[in-house]
Amino acid sequence: MYRVAESEELADRIFLQWIQAPHVARNARAGQFLIVRIDDHGERVPLTISAVDGDLVRIVFMAVGKTTRQLSTLRRGDSVRDVVGPLGRPSDIRRYGTVAVVGGGAGIASTPIIARAAAEAGNHVIGIIGARNAGLLILEEEMRGICDELHVATDDGSRGRHGFAADVLKDVMARQKIDCAWVIGPAIMMKVTSEATRRAGVRTFVSLNPIMVDGTGMCGSCRVTVGGLTRFACVDGPEFDAHLVNFDLLMQRQRTYPEEERLSLERYQEHTCRCQEGDHRG
């Protein structure tokens, strides 16, 4: 069992938690992830390691389905059954020169740890974070503290620039030379944004989020096509050269279980409603 040390709602449906998992915290590096299983009936879900502090690891997640919603109800002092990690290869952090770290939506969760590592390696770090609206923008202050400059965009213009993170990145690339970029967010956002960096000839990393089971290279559920080759995102990634990734296949595989995901969520919501009505109390 692993104790939840802190739990907070950062924005509408986006939650931040610190979990006590010394074996994960000890060796975790930027770009790696962990797998959580809440209880004996739970699914193993992958989440990026967003920060580390002593024995604690931080996760930031969007409550989209059954597991992430259930996770979001956990409070300080509650615990989860399993935490596995650190998984995946760390980000390829080097002294590139000027680096852009771009996060979209819940993908912003992954950016501070990468931005910090890139800054510590002596890079000039430009942060770009984008969300649908101001209410969904997360970790802005933290990113501002880490990056040499931070740009903000919202789809509806309610904060920062009106538009997508990709638009901001294009402007930045037009103004100055970027040596390397990280782009992390929903698959479609990564696809579009890395098209822009491809045209500009900027080396780009994306962090892929296929459906996983074990996270250790044992099942192949997470296979993705990179440069025409089959790679396992959990061990060969999750970060890959954006310009070699086949995003369409990734998105197609992400839609393997639409019916099951809906059913699982409905059943969970029904159950929690009944709980709130008192069925499960006393």
Partner: peptide
């Protein structure tokens, strides 16, 4: 890569 293709392990 199609959904519905599994390794036996998975």
């Amino acid at each position: 890569q199609l959904p519905g293709v599994y390794s036996a392990n998975e």
